[in-house]
Design a protein around this nucleic acid. Sequence first.
DNA 1: AGCTTCAGTTATATCCTCTCACAAACACGC
DNA 2: GCGTGTTTGTGAGAGGATATAACTGAAGCT
Lengths: 226, 226
Amino acid sequence: MATEGRTGPGLRDRFRAQVRQEVKTAALRQLAEGGPEALSLNAIAKQVGMTGPALYRYFANRDGLLTELVIDAYGDLASALAQAAGDAAADGGARLTSVVQAYRDWALAEPHRYRLLFRAPLQGYDAQATSLVEAAQPAMNVVLNVVSHLATPRAPEVAGSGSQFRNWMERRGVEDVSEAVAARTTMLWAHLHGLVSLEIEGNFTSMGIDPTPLYEAEVRDMVHPR
Amino acid sequence: MATEGRTGPGLRDRFRAQVRQEVKTAALRQLAEGGPEALSLNAIAKQVGMTGPALYRYFANRDGLLTELVIDAYGDLASALAQAAGDAAADGGARLTSVVQAYRDWALAEPHRYRLLFRAPLQGYDAQATSLVEAAQPAMNVVLNVVSHLATPRAPEVAGSGSQFRNWMERRGVEDVSEAVAARTTMLWAHLHGLVSLEIEGNFTSMGIDPTPLYEAEVRDMVHPR
DNA sequence: AGCTTCAGTTATATCCTCTCACAAACACGC
DNA sequence: GCGTGTTTGTGAGAGGATATAACTGAAGCT
């Protein structure tokens, strides 16, 4: 009873993991049509083939499921960005273009998941905010990396940005990045988020505007500043 | 019976309007603590002094109430921006700084309302999307106006932006604005939205960054481009 | 003054999340 | 291969949400 030898991966755990995955994909499918409001545990359970309460064996509650979806989405976005960063040739500008494109494409392909990333934390659970912030780091690191390899030794355009980025970078273990790069990456991130947010909500469409040139301008301002 | 002289505003309508306003302020108070999810018609009714179903005399349903809140918020933001644009001296750069500041301040003062602006339309009711888009125009026009009066005759940084902004501007009756200005305004809007979104969600705080210099950089890039 | 219209109530249907108590199924040590 | 304990799923149900329907009372309008 007490000191039993673990058999390893566990046979039961495997089934459990698979059910969790099925639930999550059902949740994503439901999320895609109707937004986070329409995500109903009962309906998900029915789709998976169980009754409602059974889901609570796999997820603590509704927010727990949503939080995992957010973390998964962050991971997905990060790998999409990483692949784009790896795809392009060594040229810094091309890599940035590729990463920006990947960011936009990912958001456009799954707008409900993109919304989840920046919408979920504020719904009510600030408790897990830290874990969510951590989940966002890998994606950020890709951008940070690409920006840092731009062949543009440019003076920081952000006044007084000298020291305030330092502890942030130290905390995440990135030391080979200048503070100016960190500032520019932050700006780029905010700009991209703004453009993508407006695009997936259809603001550009309702204005009759093709946002592609706007993204190009963004990259250009980054590669070829001032 | 037929051709009666209208007594004016109507006595009953006045009461009705006041109740509607009370409901909306109660809704806003509830929105401020707990987000849009926590907005409960029952609780609102109790605060106003009625039972739940009575609210349906004043608003079609939950989304109807939310939509009105969104429209009101757009109006509020627009007047805040307009006041900021009027406050500053004639100098174009100072006016832009003031407007950007006002945009940020408004969002920080009432983050729940700001979230409502960009979150509500996507919840499910695309039907009213057009009315919401229209509601957003006045705020946009203020920014457009300020940007157009910048003393920077700058070539459009957005490639191929020449004609695509034209019909948009025509549709809203703004003709004294060059297409380059429209493109730059759109970019500024997106950038501001990105910065504000990240700020009110606490992303900068969690990074230990003071975003003020980022906004300043935004204005600087706008006033003093390339 | 009388008729009509509207505000607000109670009751109800249907949905949701989430807890609890119980039954069935499985893994594992002996 | 057999008990034993953990795990998984079910049904029942509490508590609350939106929304509808039928009814009551009190205003306003002519």
